[in-house]
Design a protein around this nucleic acid. Structure first.
Length: 966
RNA sequence: GCCCGGGUGGCGGAAUUGGUAGACGCAGCAGACUCAAAAUCUGCCGUUCGCAAGAAUGUAUCGGUUCGAUUCCGAUCCCGGGCACCA
């Protein structure tokens, strides 16, 4: 009986489905475990082998946890709103809802073939009104909440309004500032518009003018990471800065808690570091510099206030609001010219240019707040308006960029570092004594910092300040395919809809083109815009991609609840995601936003935990190995096999370009008898093959290893039909290779469907894991899959030979138990630590050894099947039933290691002389050191290497090794 | 520029705290079975020297600590990823 994987896999997938084997209940006496894959966007291209890597890993882990007795939640769904479907709609007229539906069904069928244990009854889609109703509901929660600075948490905005009405907004201590503070009476007398504006400034989602990346061609605002070198990531259209009214998520108020929360979660150190860098907390001082002869002041932020006596100039961002008013008449032209130049520069260009120093002098001087020295004020693109105050105090001797700037514009540099500054480069270190620094002279940087802080606070020239790089996230998109906002506008005031008005359905449209004045496509649907009431207009932008994905892990817990986004009972039971598996590309986007939403929901008492993901496992990228056929540039109809390129090319040149090459010879050589030989030599010496061939990407599926299937290639694309091929001596055609990102355009994608069809899902799953550590990126090579397939056939043969079953009920020997228990121990450990590659090899070792000792005993094999069930569930299930076990293998108990079988009595010691391994000696493990020494010294090889010299030292590590030093 | 990974045979990779480098698999070579092929099985397989026994060498490079280093420390080079004139 052969291993018929196709029949087996189809059979069990149907049985599992029919019996709801993977359905998970919220009511269970078992301990819960939540394993989640990052929300996929159902792209039209379908899956390639890189995608399921993480899904297989999480599937194995889920099944493993279930075998260990947990109630495991392992759901899957689709982040189905997004720009690609809308772009596609613009190009083809196909409605995004239809495209998305189609893509999801392809995606899902691909997933199902791999045999995942998802509970599909919990599937969710962000574009489903039953889902986005709750995204809108959470939006309203955010809208109706503010961040209380005293309690450092979100509270209902009604509490804030109540406070304004009864107590106003007055400082606890300190000055009452006009325009910032107000009394209750003043508040109650404000017009509605003014009240709305003040409250808007505290809401956790708010509407405000923001500078956004505006892409005319796409008619939409793009996120920073969607803009590449000033062009849109999709489509490559130009992007310009534009001020527009936008919705924002007030992420910045959570900066500190997002930072602190990292201490409580099990993410990789590099992932945490990325988030820390994004949040970018820095502690420093804000210092005020007044402008000479003008009633203006520049506030600068610095993390090095102790260097204040080294300030030689100030630099403002070119967009700084003060620039226009402080620019002198003389400098006006050059400043304006410079600002025009900066406008043409994309953010990326501005930030990546290191060598070129640019800037302009404003003509104004600031006054040093302590020394009263005159300090020129410059503008330069290296200072960004969005960070700090948009102004810096430049200390050339301590900061390289300031140094370069000073040198370039010939500004005199003040040395406050003494011998630690050489006037050739800046010295940013903290290890220096301060010079030229008035009352800080002679102090270390650290002492100086403390003293200057005291001075700043008492003198009132500035204040202590904590700065964050993280800014509020833009929360609106001028697009169609996203969640509509539950907001209407009445007289320019944003009014939240009532919960009973939810969901605000996305209207069906025929036209996806942008609306007027940079609005989204929904603005064209006038009937819909006015459909709430005649005096109100609906918000026409939609929410960004991350809205739906910021809370989806909660919906899986209670996916069909039509009264709440997720019942407290369900979220209390399932709690945090125990293991979250996905790529690093979401490091700072999705992961930060979902963490922030979780904190808000926690603050409002809607859930009982404030970090969504307990442990994060990042999967590495699977790179593709591209195959290249070399096309001859002089005659595009000729393809040349890899090792023939040089010879072919030389011969061709000899025949077709002889005169051209002969001209390169000296006159004497040209006239000699050996001119042919000389030209041949010259060609071979000087030939650069790359100049004569164009590598053409070949579909990797028509290449066996590196050998091209020429017939398939000819049929692949019509222009290759009549091409000529120059073969190797053995008649094959060899391709070149290159490792690059897996992508359709490079024809190096491998579709899992094909592999599942050819080898089965079990082989495919195990091979993906066998490839290497999950976290590491590694190249895909289909060839190796044969080895794993052979392993499964070998496993099968422990149960069946060509005549039928061979398994027996005999009692296993200790040796057989030892093989089993060693495997249990190793696989258990490796699965727990996500080291699936080594688990697969230990399965191979185990099956090899059982085959060797001809073990067909059910008592051993049964346990092995349970261990295998997470990895190759179909074949494990088949053999489980075939060998007479009850129920489904997934409901069995995971075997425990019995250490008794693993005890060894003797050990084959490696014996080294002076650290070099010379021989092995088998000795009982309970030998005392003296006995070991005795035994070792008796050994002939040892004696030979000691060679009569004195033994200086005897190193014995029991059960490990022996080293003799002579 | 900064931060985080990583560099081990022809290839993917293995090596629990510093203790036999190269497990397992692919590819390759040789052989068995077969009319033949596929499948399967057996053996070999880092490099150099050697008929062999064996020896030398070897985990990016150089240096250090140690009886002993792929593992720890220092410096350098290369590859991948992330962030970015972040003051």
């Amino acid at each position: 009986m052969d291993y018929n994987f196709r029949e087996i896999e189809e059979k069990w997938q149907n049985v599992w489905k029919k019996n709801n084997v993977y359905k998970v209940e919220n009511d269970s006496a078992k301990k819960k475990f939540y394993v989640l894959d990052m929300f996929p966007y159902p792209s039209g291209a379908g899956l390639h082998v890189g995608h399921p890597l993480g899904y297989i890993a999480s599937d194995i882990y889920s099944r493993y946890k279930r075998l260990k007795g947990f109630n495991v939640l392992h759901p899957m769904g689709f982040d189905s709103f997004g720009l690609p479907a809308e772009q596609y709609a613009l190009e083809t007229g196909c409605h995004p809802a239809d495209t998305t539906e189609k893509n999801i069904s392809v995606f899902k069928s691909q997933l199902e073939k791999i045999g995942f244990c998802y509970d599909w009854s919990r599937e969710i889609r962000t574009s489903d009104p039953l889902y986005y109703r709750w995204t809108q509901w959470i939006f309203l929660e955010l809208f109706n909440s503010y961040f209380c600075n005293t309690q450092q948490k979100a509270l209902p905005i009604s509490e804030l309004i109540n406070k304004y009405e009864t107590k106003g907004a007055v400082p606890k201590n300190g000055l009452f500032k006009e325009g910032v503070h107000f009394t209750a009476d003043e508040w109650n007398g404000y017009p509605v518009e003014k009240q709305a504006e003040i409250i808007m400034n505290r809401r956790l989602v708010y509407s405000a003018y923001g500078e956004v990346n505006w892409c005319e061609a796409l008619g939409t605002v793009l996120a920073n990471d969607e803009v590449i070198n000033g062009f849109s990531e999709r489509g490559g259209h130009p992007v310009v800065k534009k001020k527009m009214k936008q919705w924002f998520l007030r992420t910045s108020v959570y900066a500190d808690r997002l930072l602190a929360g990292l201490e409580k979660v099990d993410f990789s150190e590099s992932m945490k570091e990325m988030q820390r860098n994004w949040i970018g907390k820095s502690i420093g001082a804000e210092i005020i510099f007044s402008i000479e002869n003008l009633d203006k002041a520049i506030r600068v932020f610095t993390t090095r206030p102790e260097t204040i006596f080294g300030v030689d100039f100030l630099v403002l961002a070119p967009e700084h609001p003060l620039v226009a008013s402080i620019t002198s008449a003389v400098q006006k032209e050059s400043v304006e010219k410079y600002i025009d130049y900066v406008k043409t520069r994309s953010d990326r260009e501005r930030m990546s240019e290191v060598k070129q120093v640019t800037g302009a002098f404003t003509g104004s001087y600031a006054v040093h707040p302590i020394s009263k020295k005159k300090i020129p004020v410059w503008i330069s693109e290296y200072v960004l308006q969005g960070y700090g105050t948009g102004a810096i105090m430049a200390v050339p001797c301590g900061d390289q960029r300031d140094f370069n700037f000073a040198k370039h514009f010939k500004i005199k540099i003040t040395n406050i570092l003494g011998d630690n500054f050489n006037n050739e480069e800046a010295n940013p270190s903290y290890n220096s004594i301060l010079h030229n620094s008035d009352f800080l002279n002679g102090l270390s940087m650290k002492e100086g910092a403390q003293k200057i802080f005291e001075y700043i606070l008492t003198s009132g020239i500035g204040s202590r300040k904590i700065n964050y790089k993280m800014r509020d996230a833009g929360f609106s998109r001028q697009r169609y395919w996203g969640e509509p906002f539950p907001i209407i506008w009445m007289h320019d005031i944003a009014v939240p809809l009532d919960e009973s008005d939810l969901p605000v359905l996305l209207p069906h449209v025929e036209n996806y083109k942008p609306g007027p004045n940079g609005q989204g496509p929904l603005a064209n649907e006038t009937e819909w815009v006015n459909s709430f009431s005649s005096s109100a207009k609906r918000e026409t932008s939609t929410m960004p991609g991350y809205a739906g994905s910021s809370w989806y892990f909660l919906r899986y817990m209670d996916p069909h609840n039509n009264r709440e986004f997720c019942s407290r009972k369900a979220s209390d039971y399932w709690n945090q995601v125990d293991v979250y598996v996905g790529g690093t590309e979401h490091a700072v986007g999705h992961l930060l936003y979902s963490r922030m939403w979780t904190k808000v929901l926690y603050d409002l008492g809607l859930i009982g935990f404030d970090e969504p993901f307990k442990r994060l496992v990042n999967q590495g990228m699977i790179t593709g190995s591209s195959r290249l056929a070399y096309r001859f540039r002089e005659n595009k109809n000729i393809f040349v096999s890899l090792n023939k390129c040089e010879g072919f090319c030389a011969k061709w040149l000899m025949e077709n370009r002889f005169d051209e090459w002969a001209d390169k010879l000296s006159g004497e050589e040209r006239n000699s008898e050996n001119v042919n030989q000389l030209v041949w030599k010259l060609i071979n010496d000087r030939l650069n093959v790359k100049d004569f061939f164009d590598p053409v990407h070949v579909d990797v599926n028509i290449v066996d290893g590196v050998t091209l299937n020429v017939e398939a290639f000819k049929n692949w694309k019509t222009d290759y039909k009549n091409s000529d091929f120059i073969y190797e001596d053995d008649g094959s055609f060899i391709c070149g290779t290159e490792i690059e990102k897996m992508s359709k355009s490079k024809y190096n994608t491998v579709n899992p469907d094909d592999l599942v069809l050819k080898y089965g899902a079990d082989t495919f799953r195990m091979y993906e894991m066998f490839l290497g550590p999950v976290e590491q990126s590694k190249p895909w090579d289909t060839k190796g899959i044969e080895g794993v397939h052979r392993f499964l056939k070998k496993l099968w043969r422990l149960f069946y030979n060509e005549n039928g079953p061979v398994f027996t009920k005999e009692e296993p020997t200790n040796a057989e138990y030892k093989i089993l228990h060693r495997t249990i121990k190793k696989v258990n450990h490796d699965t727990e630590t996500f080291s699936f590659n080594t688990a697969v090899s230990s399965f191979m070792v185990c099956v090899n050894e059982l085959t060797e000792v001809k073990c067909h005993k059910i008592k051993i094999l049964k346990e092995l099947l349970i261990l295998l069930a997470p990895y190759c569930p179909h074949v494990a299930e088949e053999l489980w039933h075939a060998s007479g076990n009850p129920g489904f293998v997934i409901d069995a108990d995971y075997p425990e290691t019995n250490e008794n079988y693993l005890k060894e009595t003797s050990f084959n010691y490696p014996v080294s002389i002076n650290g070099k391994l010379r021989t092995n000696i088998e000795m009982p493990l309970d030998f005392e050191n003296a006995e070991i020494e005795n035994e070792v010294l008796k050994n002939e090889t040892v004696q030979k290497w000691i060679d009569g010299k004195a033994v200086k030292k005897f190193i014995i590590i029991k059960g490990k090794m022996i080293n003799v030093v002579v």
